[in-house]
Simulated assay, not measured.
Amino acid sequence: MLMKKVLIVDDEAEIVELIVMVLDDGQVQLLTAYDGEQAMRIIKEQRPDVVLTDVMMPRLDGRELCKMVKSDPSISDTKVILMSAIHRLDKGDCPADGLIHKPFDIVAIVEAVHKFLDQ
């Protein structure tokens, strides 16, 4: 059976490392990126099942990354979960599958990611 893949995207390395530690259960392959442009390359090459991305990032923010993923038929089935300190996110702004508020609860991240992995 193929191992499911999760891409973690945040411009703060400490946050990426923390999420990797929390999700690293040996059951999923964890990929990391530190900006939206790098994330888009990884999404096209590696085809992760779930992308967990920060909204506020340099070069290409999480909302734009989400729009690009959802508008590309070859990768549009990828689940995108946004992480943001902005407590309201307009669905018209970005067709994300989920939203986790920062500062985040570790349990909420694990539950959100596994909800989509188990589908």
Rank of each mutant, 00 (worst) to 15 (best):
R59F: 10
D54W: 03
M57R: 04
L52F: 12
C66K: 01
I43M: 02
E45D: 15
A39Q: 01
P58Y: 04
V51Q: 13
A39K: 00
Y34C: 15
R63L: 06
G36D: 03
L60C: 09
Q38G: 11
L60N: 04
K44L: 14
L30H: 05
E64P: 07
D54R: 03
C66G: 00
D35V: 04
M56R: 11
A39L: 07
V55S: 10
P48C: 13
V55W: 06
G36H: 05
R63S: 07
G36K: 04
R59G: 06
M40G: 03
D35H: 12
V50I: 13
D54G: 09
V51W: 08
T53K: 08
L31D: 07
P58K: 03
R47M: 14
T53W: 01
R59H: 10
L30V: 05
M40Q: 02
E37R: 07
M56P: 07
D54Q: 02
I42Y: 13
M56T: 14
R63H: 08
L65I: 07
G36Q: 00
P58V: 14
D35I: 01
M40D: 12
D54K: 04
L30N: 03
V51L: 12
V50F: 04
Q29W: 12
M56Y: 13
Q29I: 11
Q38I: 15
A39T: 05
V51A: 02
M56D: 13
K44G: 12
L65K: 01
M40K: 06
D35W: 00
K44C: 09
G62S: 06
R59C: 05
G36W: 00
T53A: 12
L52T: 02
M57D: 06
L52E: 00
L60D: 05
V51D: 00
E37H: 08
D49L: 05
P48G: 08
E64I: 04
R41V: 11
E37Q: 10
P58W: 01
V50K: 05
I43G: 00
